[in-house]
Computed example of a mutant assay.
Amino acid sequence: MAGSEPDWTKPAAMAIPPEGYLELERGRYGPVFPRTPACYGFSIIAKVKEGREDVVRAYGKTIEKTIATSPEALAPLKLHYLRWNLFDIGSGLHFQYMGIFDTDFDKYTEDAVELFSATGITTVFTNLEGFPEDWKENPSAFVQFVREHQMPSFLEYGEYPYVTADEIKKALRLKASFSTMLDQMQ
């Protein structure tokens, strides 16, 4: 991949070592996780504070309503996908956050803190054990929590590898424009 643009026309897969990276490269807050065929991302698993399941589930509804009202609300995060799961692994309820996005880990977490601080929306992570109460004023504590609870992937696959969300949206706008043009020609 070095020195050349990845070929988005062919599916690609990348096996990742247990450390979560192929070569140790230091970012602002620790190791830089690689860009994979799925772009960048991380998965966090953390225990939910006792009695907070309903609050966590309600937060999903809050995000749903926020996006319905303001579709670009999370745009600064350059997200492709988010998946949230709740499950009990025998020691209490746990939350899993899986996000795929276009920026590196450090930028994503900094942007998340900035976005939440600017909008007044809080993060669902406040319902997780060990999450720092000063996270808005202390982005490095937010990042440290995320890194401590990060569960690196060992395989990532992309049907259209290394393509950004903006590139996908641009291609879909182009497709819509061509469809409109063809419809007008009939």
Rank of each mutant, 00 (worst) to 15 (best):
E137A: 10
N138T: 04
N138R: 00
N138M: 03
P139K: 03
P139R: 09
P139T: 01
S140T: 05
S140C: 07
A141F: 01
A141S: 05
A141D: 03
A141G: 01
F142L: 08
F142D: 01
F142K: 07
F142H: 02
V143N: 00
V143T: 10
V143I: 02
Q144W: 11
Q144D: 12
F145V: 00
F145C: 02
R147I: 07
R147T: 00
R147A: 04
E148G: 04
H149G: 01
H149Y: 08
Q150G: 11
Q150N: 14
M151T: 13
P152F: 03
P152Y: 00
S153E: 15
F154G: 07
L155A: 06
E156D: 11
E156I: 09
E156R: 04
E156M: 09
E156C: 04
Y157H: 10
Y157Q: 02
Y157R: 00
Y157W: 11
Y157P: 08
G158A: 09
G158Q: 05
G158F: 03
E159H: 12
Y160E: 08
Y160R: 08
Y160P: 04
Y160T: 08
Y162M: 01
Y162T: 00
V163I: 09
V163F: 09
V163Q: 07
T164D: 03
A165Y: 09
A165V: 07
A165M: 11
D166Q: 07
D166V: 12
E167G: 00
E167D: 06
I168V: 10
I168P: 08
I168A: 10
I168C: 02
K169C: 05
K169Q: 02
K170V: 07
A171K: 12
A171G: 00
A171Y: 08
A171E: 02
L172Q: 06
L172W: 11
L172I: 09
R173C: 03
L174S: 11
L174E: 12
K175I: 01
K175F: 07
A176D: 10
S177Q: 15
S177I: 13
F178D: 09
S179V: 13
S179Y: 15
S179E: 15
T180L: 13
T180K: 12
T180Y: 15
